[in-house]
């Protein structure tokens, strides 16, 4: 699905990511841990093609296509989507209209909004005065409409109160085809094998793992990647020793 090879990235002439390698298979969900300022969001924005992030070396391949220099909207059209941590407010643009833009004129705004309890927000200006949890639900609503094959989630649990976290977690599971439900036609095991959506979740607390299942964990520290293993194990290490242990790795 996604292949990142020896990626180096600069912003305003300053190198912020070094030698990043990453491979996400179809159906896989990766979690990227790292303290604030380690370059997690920069990596996500680079993957999505934000122009202020300059790739100086290496390449990004998505669905077998080199997208290193592809504009943001073309990446979106190829099936990449971002759940933003702090999405901008757009005055005068109704949430309903935005959902419709995401779905390419799908016309099923009401139905989707119901899934994340956002019906009352459809006729409000996009993200205007939304609370933390409402912003996340708005983002998930847009992504459900966009239906990307690779979802990049930037700190999905940040700013969400306890009441909302369960709903947000479940909605993310749905988005990543990770809800557990039984169908008569196929076994749960078969349905797991049929998953095609991939995800890359970045988090510095790891709380989201209580609600969303993930396959592979990695740590990004000062622009370097390390510690690729089971996400729970990575989290336990960080819990025990903090990101301080990463200093030793990077050196």
């Amino acid at each position: 699905m996604l292949l990142v090879e020896d990626l180096r990235v600069e912003i305003d002439g300053k190198e912020i990511l070094q030698h990043i390698d990453m491979e996400i298979q179809p159906g896989e969900v990766h979690v990227l841990f790292g303290p604030n300022g380690s370059g997690k969001t920069s990596l996500l924005m680079t993957l999505m093609g934000y122009p202020q992030y300059k790739v100086t070396y290496g390449r990004i391949e998505y669905k077998g296509v080199d997208i290193t220099n592809m504009p943001v909207n073309e990446r979106a059209q190829m099936g990449m989507g971002v759940m933003y941590q702090r999405p901008p407010t757009i005055h005068g643009l109704k949430t309903r209209h935005m959902v419709n833009i995401c779905s390419g004129n799908g016309g099923n705004e009401e139905e989707l909004a119901q899934l994340v309890n956002m019906q009352d927000f459809l006729d409000r200006d996009l993200n205007a005065g939304f609370s933390g949890g409402e912003l996340k639900r708005s983002e998930i609503l847009q992504l459900m409409a966009q239906a990307p094959d690779l979802v990049l989630l930037d700190e999905p649990e940040s700013g969400v109160d306890l009441e909302n976290i369960l709903l947000v977690g479940e909605a993310i599971n749905r988005l990543l085809e990770r809800e557990i439900h039984r169908e008569n036609s196929i076994t749960i095991c078969q349905s797991k094998e049929q998953r095609s959506r991939s995800g890359l979740i970045i988090t510095h607390t790891g709380f989201i793992l209580d609600y969303v299942t993930a396959d592979i964990g990695q740590v990004l520290y000062k622009g370097h990647m390390s510690c690729k293993s089971n996400p729970r194990e990575v989290l336990r290490c960080i819990d025990k020793f903090g990101y301080g242990e990463c200093v030793r790795c990077v050196i």
Partner: peptide
């Protein structure tokens, strides 16, 4: 805001006019 709309699939011109 333009990049936000572009990341949902709109071209730069369409994002601006929206």
């Amino acid at each position: 805001a333009i990049l936000y709309l572009m990341s949902r699939g709109l071209s730069e011109d369409d994002a601006t006019s929206t």
